[in-house]
Design a protein around this nucleic acid. Structure first.
Lengths: 254, 254
DNA sequence: TAGTGGTCTAGACCACACA
DNA sequence: GTGTGGTCTAGACCACTAA
C-alpha cells in the first residue's frame, strides 16, 4: 500500500476511471464506497457502522483516510458521529427534518413539527411541470397528496406533494403519515439527502384561502421544493403555500 | 511540544481559559488566533497568507494542526485556498456576494448582480426594531439608505438598509456604492461573515407599488436580513421587498 | 524547478460513553 | 476498564502553479 495514485478494489471502481475523471483521491473513493452501502441499504438508518479501525483494515487503507471520508459524510448529514459511542447512519426523525428541511418557524417561539391533515390523494398522469421536475417520461404517473398542516391550532400550510408512482408503489394504499421522508426510508429504502427550494410570494385563490381559513388574495409564501435522493435523483416535488402572518421562513447565509 | 492539553502563547489566550470553557483543541485556538488577525486587519482581504509551514513554525504547532484551522476557515468562506498558489483572505467581490448573499435569481437564466439606485438617505434615531436587531442603546442613531434594485431593466427590489452610525461614521458623505459589503471591508475594516434572513409574503402598499412600477396589493417577498461581522456582532439590517413574478428566492437544504 | 496546498500513512495520546 | 471517535505529530509523496 505504498502506491499513491491507485484505486481500491471495489466493483464500483472500474479500472481507468481515475484517468477519465482526472485525479480522484483515495478518501473520495472510500467515501463513494460508503455512499454505495447507504444507497444499497447495507447500512440502514439508525444502525452503527463498524469502527474506523475495522473499516480501515477491511479496505486496506489508513484510519486517517477512512476518517476523512466519514467526516465528509457527517458534514453532509448522512452520518452522525458521536465521540465515545460510534458512527451511525442518520435517520429521518422529526428532529432532523425540523433542523434540515423545515424552515418555517413561528415568529415567536421555536420551530415545531407541524401536524398534517390529508385532504385528498390521487393517481394521475404527470403534468409537464411534474415531468420536468421529477425527470419522468410522457405517460408516467404520479401520486398526488394534498394536505394542510398546522402549527398549533391554525392551518398555515397547504401543500401538494407529487411522487413518481413507479418509485413508491402502493404508497396510497395505507395511511399517509405526517413524516413522509421517514416512510420513504423505511418502506422504500429511499433516503432524501437534500432539497432545493424556490420561493415566491403569491396571492391565495378563493379555494386556497378557504382551505386556510383566510381571505382570498391574502399574500402567501409559495415554496417549490424538489427533494433529491442520495444518488441525486429527484424523488419528490412539493408545492407549499404558507401563511406568514405569524411565522417566517428562516434562511442562514454562511 | 509534547504536552497535549495546553494553550498556545497568545495575548488572546488567557491562561486557564481552557478550564472555564472546557476542553478546547489546539487547532481551535489556532483558528481563533487567525480570526483575530482577520478582525484586526493584519490579514487584509485579497492578501496571501504565509504558507502552512511558516505558520506552523511561527506558532510552534504541526503543519497538520494549522491545516485543520485553515480548512475550517475556508469552509466558512473566510479564506480561499488554491492548490499550488497559496491561501488568501476572501474578498467581498461581486462573485462572492452573488454566491453567498444574493439568493434572488431570475426564473430563467442565471444569477446576476443587480444595479442599485439610491432613493434617499437619512440619519435618525434608531427605532425599536432597529435597536433590537442591531443591539443599540436608546438614543443611538442609524443611517438609513433606501434604494431600489433592478435585474435587467425592471426594478424588482425595494430595500431599506439600516446601519449603526457609530460603526460607519461619514458613510453618507460620499456616494453609496452598489456593493456595500465591499465598502464596509475596505473603508471600515468590517467583514460581513454571514447573515440571517427571515422571509415573509406581504402585500405592497400603494407607495411601495409605485416605486416598483406595479399595482398596490401585489404580493411581494419581504426579506429581513441581519448581517453579522466576523465577531458575530450585528452590522446591518436590511429590509428588502422583492417582486417574484419573474424571479425566485433560491434555498438549498443540505 | 521551486514552492504551495492536497493526500496518505503510522503511531501516540486524549476525551467521552458505557458497562 | 474497554472501546469509540477526536486530536496531534512527523514525514513522505503527489498535484498544481508560476517563474
Amino acid at each position: 500500500m505504498t502506491e499513491y495514485k491507485r484505486e481500491i478494489a471495489l466493483p464500483s471502481e472500474p479500472a481507468g476511471g481515475a484517468e477519465i475523471l482526472g485525479f480522484r483521491p483515495l478518501y473520495r473513493q472510500v467515501k463513494d464506497h460508503f455512499v454505495r452501502r447507504l444507497v444499497d441499504g447495507v447500512w440502514a438508518p439508525g444502525t452503527a457502522l463498524p469502527s474506523e479501525g475495522q473499516l480501515a483494515a477491511e479496505l486496506g487503507v489508513s484510519q486517517g483516510t477512512v476518517r476523512k471520508a466519514l467526516d465528509e459524510l457527517a458534514a453532509e448529514n448522512l452520518l452522525v458521529r458521536r465521540q465515545g459511542r460510534g458512527t451511525f447512519v442518520a435517520e429521518h426523525d422529526e428532529q432532523r427534518i425540523l433542523f434540515q428541511f423545515f424552515k418555517l418557524v413561528p415568529d415567536d417561539g421555536a420551530a415545531r413539527f407541524p401536524d398534517s391533515t390529508v385532504l385528498a390523494t390521487e393517481s394521475a398522469e404527470a403534468d409537464p411541470a411534474e415531468r420536468q421536475a421529477l425527470a419522468l417520461e410522457v405517460g408516467e404517473t404520479v401520486l398526488r397528496i394534498r394536505r394542510f398542516r398546522s402549527l398549533g391550532d391554525k392551518p398555515v400550510i397547504l401543500e401538494t406533494i407529487s411522487l413518481p408512482e413507479r418509485r413508491f408503489p402502493g404508497l396510497a394504499n395505507g395511511p399517509i403519515p405526517n413524516n413522509l421522508y421517514s416512510l420513504f426510508a423505511t418502506r422504500y429504502g429511499v433516503t432524501v439527502a437534500h432539497a432545493r427550494e424556490k420561493l415566491k410570494a403569491v396571492a391565495l385563490s378563493p379555494e386556497e384561502a378557504r382551505r386556510l381559513g383566510t381571505a382570498a388574495g391574502t399574500p402567501a409564501l409559495l415554496i417549490d421544493r424538489l427533494a433529491l435522493s442520495l444518488e441525486g435523483a429527484p424523488v419528490e416535488r412539493r408545492l407549499s403555500l404558507c401563511l406568514t402572518e405569524e411565522a417566517h421562513y428562516q434562511s442562514d447565509l454562511r
